[in-house]
C-alpha cells in the first residue's frame, strides 16, 4: 500500500545551554501507509513525542526529509503547512487543548468553518453526527470548564476528525483519563481507523498500543525494533495481542 507519511534520516537536536546540543532523534526512517495504525513506544526520553511532532511538521526538524502524500513538506511555507494541518491532518493530545471562551460545539466546528471545504449546513450535520457517535451531543453548548475530562478528550477527537483527515496524530490520548474512559477513546480511534484514517500514536500503555497494526520501539532516538500485530478486530478476544506485545517489550527492557 502507498505511504501517506514517510520520514527519511530524520534528526532533531535540542539546544542545552549556550553551546551544547543533545540529539534526540537519530536518522529515523519511518513509513506510515494509508489507513495504517502505528503505535510508537519507548522509555521516557526515548524521543517518542519528538518523533511525532517532527514527522507531523508541527516542530522544526534539524535534518532529514519528511514526505506527506508523496510531497516533501520540509520547505513548505507556514501558510501551506497550516493548510495541510487544517485539511489533511488531525491532532489529539494528552490534554484536550480546547479553546477557552468557546463552547464544546464551537471548538469542534471551528476547523471546518475555517477550512470551508463544505457548505456550512453540511458541516453542522457532520458535527452533530460525530458528537452523537462520541456521546457528547448533550454537552455541545457547554463551556469547556463545565464538562469532564473524558468528555473534553472526546470533543478533542471530534475536532480532530471534523475535516476528515487522512492521518490522525495522537500523543498519549488516554494519558489523562481513567481506564473506562481510555477504553472508550480507543474504541473510537479503532473505529475511525477502520473507516480509512491512518493513525500515528505515541503511548506508554500496552493496552493502547495493542490496538495498533504495528508497534515501533524507540530507544535513544533510534528505531530499535518493529512488531507487526495485524488489524485489530473488536469482535474477538484480543488479549493475545497484549501478551505478544508485552513479551516483545520485556525483551527490550521495557
Amino acid at each position: 500500500m502507498e505511504a501517506i507519511l514517510e520520514a527519511k534520516g530524520l534528526c532533531k537536536d535540542y539546544e542545552v545551554g549556550r553551546d551544547d546540543k543533545i540529539r534526540v532523534l537519530r536518522d529515523v526512517d519511518l513509513k506510515v501507509k494509508k489507513g495504517e495504525f502505528v503505535a510508537i513506544m519507548g522509555q521516557s526520553g526515548s524521543g517518542k513525542s519528538t518523533l511525532l511532532y517532527n514527522i507531523s511538521g508541527m516542530d522544526q526538524k534539524t535534518s532529514g526529509k519528511v514526505y506527506f502524500d508523496g510531497k516533501d513538506i520540509s520547505d513548505l511555507s507556514d501558510k501551506e503547512m497550516s493548510r495541510i494541518r487544517l485539511t489533511k491532518m488531525g491532532f489529539v493530545f494528552q490534554h484536550s487543548h480546547l479553546l477557552k471562551n468557546m463552547s464544546i460545539r464551537d471548538n469542534i466546528i471551528l476547523p471546518a468553518f475555517k477550512a470551508s471545504k463544505k457548505p456550512k449546513a453540511e458541516i453542522s450535520k457532520d458535527a452533530d453526527e460525530l458528537m452523537i457517535k462520541l456521546g457528547i451531543d448533550r454537552v455541545g453548548s457547554h463551556d469547556i470548564t463545565k464538562v469532564s475530562g473524558g468528555q473534553l478528550q472526546r470533543a478533542a477527537i471530534c475536532r480532530a476528525l471534523i475535516n476528515h483527515p487522512v492521518i490522525l496524530f495522537c500523543d498519549e490520548p488516554t494519558g489523562a483519563l481513567n481506564s473506562s474512559a481510555s477504553i472508550e477513546v480507543m474504541n473510537i480511534l479503532n473505529a475511525v481507523n477502520k473507516e480509512g484514517t491512518a493513525i500515528l500514536l505515541v503511548t506508554h500503555d500496552v493496552k493502547v498500543a495493542a490496538r495498533a497494526d504495528r508497534v515501533i520501539f524507540l530507544k535513544d532516538g533510534r528505531i530499535e525494533a518493529e512488531l507487526s500485530l495485524g488489524k485489530y478486530n473488536p469482535n474477538i478476544d484480543n488479549s493475545h495481542r497484549e501478551e505478544i506485545l508485552l513479551n516483545w517489550l520485556s525483551r527490550r527492557g521495557f
Binding site: D78, R85, L98, L99, L110
Partner: peptide
C-alpha cells in the same frame, strides 16, 4: 492551539 488546528501565523 489554533496553530495546531491549522490556523497560520498570518491568520
Amino acid at each position: 492551539n489554533m496553530k495546531a488546528m491549522g490556523f497560520s501565523n498570518m491568520d
